[in-house]
Design a binder for these strands. Sequence first.
DNA 1: ACGTCGTTGGAAAGCGTTTGCCCGATACGG
DNA 2: CCGTATCGGGCAAACGCTTTCCAACGACGT
Lengths: 338, 338
Amino acid sequence: MTLADVARRADVSLATASRALNGSARVVRADLAERVAAAAAELGYVPDPVAQSLARKSSNLVGLVVHDIADPFFSSIAAGAMRVAEEKDLVLTLGATGRDPDRAIALVAAMRLQRARALVLVGSRLTGDDEAEERLAEELRRFAADGGRVCAVRQPGLPGDVVQPDNRGGARQLATALAQLGHRRVAVLAGPEGVATSQERVEGFCEGFAAAGVDTSGVRLLRTAFTRDGGYAAAAELARDPGDVTCVFAVSDVMAMGTLAALRERGVRVPEDVSVAGFDDIPTLRDAVPALSTVRLPLEEIGELAARMALEETPGDERLVVVPTEVVLRASTAPPRG
Amino acid sequence: MTLADVARRADVSLATASRALNGSARVVRADLAERVAAAAAELGYVPDPVAQSLARKSSNLVGLVVHDIADPFFSSIAAGAMRVAEEKDLVLTLGATGRDPDRAIALVAAMRLQRARALVLVGSRLTGDDEAEERLAEELRRFAADGGRVCAVRQPGLPGDVVQPDNRGGARQLATALAQLGHRRVAVLAGPEGVATSQERVEGFCEGFAAAGVDTSGVRLLRTAFTRDGGYAAAAELARDPGDVTCVFAVSDVMAMGTLAALRERGVRVPEDVSVAGFDDIPTLRDAVPALSTVRLPLEEIGELAARMALEETPGDERLVVVPTEVVLRASTAPPRG
DNA sequence: ACGTCGTTGGAAAGCGTTTGCCCGATACGG
DNA sequence: CCGTATCGGGCAAACGCTTTCCAACGACGT
């Protein structure tokens, strides 16, 4: 079952057997190659990936680093990435950071030691922590120096390719659509200050309002956790003092779910009393009631694209692909009453 | 950065350095051990996991095989498994079968070649395909023969430990609760014939009804795909000819979501016109409207438990842990009307 | 004082590949 | 007909670690 067995059986040297089987630069005479192939087939030879990893300096692993795999946002992306890994006969390794930059760095380091061939890094950067960001960049450079390729699904700024969901643009379009419906005073439920994705969506939203000629003093910003419970809490607080808000924009679908729950519990009707919109268009949440207006992000495709970019033998420099978004208005939004 | 550097610096042999650093059976004199530790620290030495894998015949990888990582059922379990992998400084590799037994076999084989230390296999078996099941068992035996440990989250019958959600018991309890509410005629939306998990839940449900003294001829079985769309389609069909059904039991939460959607579109009110119950208690779906009555499965804990069992140095034979379930009645169920 | 045994360091043989290098053979130009 | 490329096979040296085996040494019993 080792290459030596195959070589012996085909009556060639180890070197020839190796070259015949993995088609190196060196050409092997046809008859020998055939003998080797036959021997390998008869013996049911399968190369040992660990030994190969050691000898070449690269493995058949591709790393995927996410914040939280139980979050449908990340698991959808993971599903896309996994498809291409399997298609290319690579093994996907998964790491979860729990939004801790240090964990991310440790995971990248681990992947480098495993000689992973490529790395897909998913998840918003924390803008506050420039020092950690620099350490992460440093670790990624090390990874790249060892021959690994990197693609991040997040904001640009790190070494490697980037797939960037058009958070800003999507939020801008959403704001436009909402303004068109007649909304002027909206509460934006954002994540914590440092979460770049949240920040972009907030800014895009304001831009969209401004572009639509709406006074952005009408947007009321509430910061909370970037989770379902965060959305719930913020909405609960908002309900206590709603002011003249006619619409709530939660910067992610999971937050929007919390928002809907909180409003429902308090007897606030959506969309009659207030409209609600989210962001991401998580597939699992498509059956929410009322159906959530949101900005669609093709998550699986994003994962697929990122994996492909990370695995592509790139000739030149770092690429940036902005993934377009699409606003989908469903039942959770309506013109403000009155 | 190699062990040789450390050995040289500590002025000991390679063997001693290795023994000092990973505490083998052989004892290293204290002063030497200290010198090695110091040298390693000064040099920032980190062992090469690939070389270690080759030399020992076991790696720091632990494999996780699921049907579909985008499905919250599996991603929740994955999250639990990942926690313990990280806790033990192991790298988790992820594979998706897409419910194809051959893919599962191929993934196990791949994990064996990677010398994965343990394997967690999640997902219902296909009862129809005994031949594929036997091939999978064979592959698992090979895996175990190479020193890998296996824990399956599924029906018993495969080599290795088993964590088995109490599908039958949970469904039985659910049936009891539903019967107590007054339901006598219920439609059970099941997965395809061969899916064991679905089958168990169906059978448990019938048992529960019988135990409650309800005539099980009152349960109407509809087979469909084990997905959200399957639940939707089956519910649509049911709505066309509802008979005197007062309650629908969809054998999984995602199917129940499809069911709710189909009923809603047709103006059937839940729970006023008909009650709906699911199974799993997927966290992401907790905000469904109406809140779904279901059978709670502690998914993350299951993943954690399975990973722990797979990683434990087991003294004896194969263990079977049945994970208890708990029925939670929420807003989607009510007594049948009049 | 001598044999025996337990302890511990070190040399070296793996683990299963890939690949640099040498060398013979064949082809080709002069 | 000889010299020089060119092609392609094989030997052996990596890759970075673990572990077996041997030898040295001190302790201990008699």
